[in-house]
Amino acid sequence: MKLTVYLSGEIHTDWRADIARGVADAGLDVELTGPNTNHGASDDCGDQILGAEEKAFWKDHKAAKINALRTRKLIADADIVVVRFGDQYKQWNAAFDAGYAAALGKSLIVQHDPALTHPLKEVDAAAMAVCETPLQVVEILRYINRDN
Results as ranks from 00 to 15, higher is better:
1 M>A: 13
1 M>H: 10
1 M>Q: 06
2 K>W: 07
4 T>D: 13
5 V>A: 04
7 L>F: 12
7 L>R: 02
8 S>C: 15
10 E>T: 14
15 W>V: 06
15 W>F: 12
17 A>H: 08
17 A>P: 01
18 D>V: 10
20 A>M: 03
21 R>T: 14
21 R>H: 11
22 G>Y: 06
22 G>M: 06
24 A>L: 10
26 A>H: 13
28 L>D: 01
29 D>H: 08
29 D>P: 06
29 D>K: 09
30 V>Y: 06
30 V>N: 11
32 L>F: 08
33 T>F: 02
34 G>A: 06
34 G>L: 03
37 T>N: 09
37 T>G: 00
37 T>V: 14
39 H>S: 15
43 D>S: 12
45 C>F: 03
46 G>P: 02
47 D>T: 07
47 D>S: 15
48 Q>T: 05
48 Q>P: 00
50 L>W: 06
50 L>R: 00
52 A>T: 04
53 E>D: 06
53 E>T: 05
54 E>K: 15
56 A>R: 12
56 A>S: 13
57 F>I: 13
57 F>K: 12
58 W>L: 15
62 K>S: 05
64 A>M: 10
64 A>I: 02
66 I>M: 15
68 A>D: 10
69 L>F: 08
70 R>W: 10
71 T>M: 07
73 K>H: 12
74 L>D: 12
74 L>H: 02
75 I>W: 10
75 I>R: 02
77 D>P: 02
80 I>C: 11
82 V>I: 13
82 V>T: 10
82 V>E: 11
82 V>A: 04
82 V>H: 02
84 R>A: 11
86 G>M: 09
87 D>Y: 04
87 D>S: 12
88 Q>F: 10
88 Q>P: 01
89 Y>T: 14
89 Y>A: 09
89 Y>W: 12
90 K>Q: 05
90 K>I: 09
93 N>R: 08
93 N>Y: 11
94 A>M: 11
94 A>V: 06
96 F>G: 02
96 F>V: 01
97 D>F: 12
101 A>I: 03
101 A>V: 01
101 A>G: 11
102 A>V: 02
103 A>P: 01
104 L>V: 13
106 K>G: 04
110 V>I: 14
112 H>M: 11
112 H>S: 15
113 D>M: 07
119 P>M: 00
119 P>A: 02
122 E>M: 08
123 V>A: 11
125 A>G: 04
128 M>K: 15
128 M>Q: 13
129 A>R: 07
130 V>G: 00
131 C>Y: 03
133 T>Q: 05
135 L>Q: 13
137 V>S: 03
138 V>K: 04
139 E>T: 04
139 E>C: 05
143 Y>L: 14
144 I>D: 05
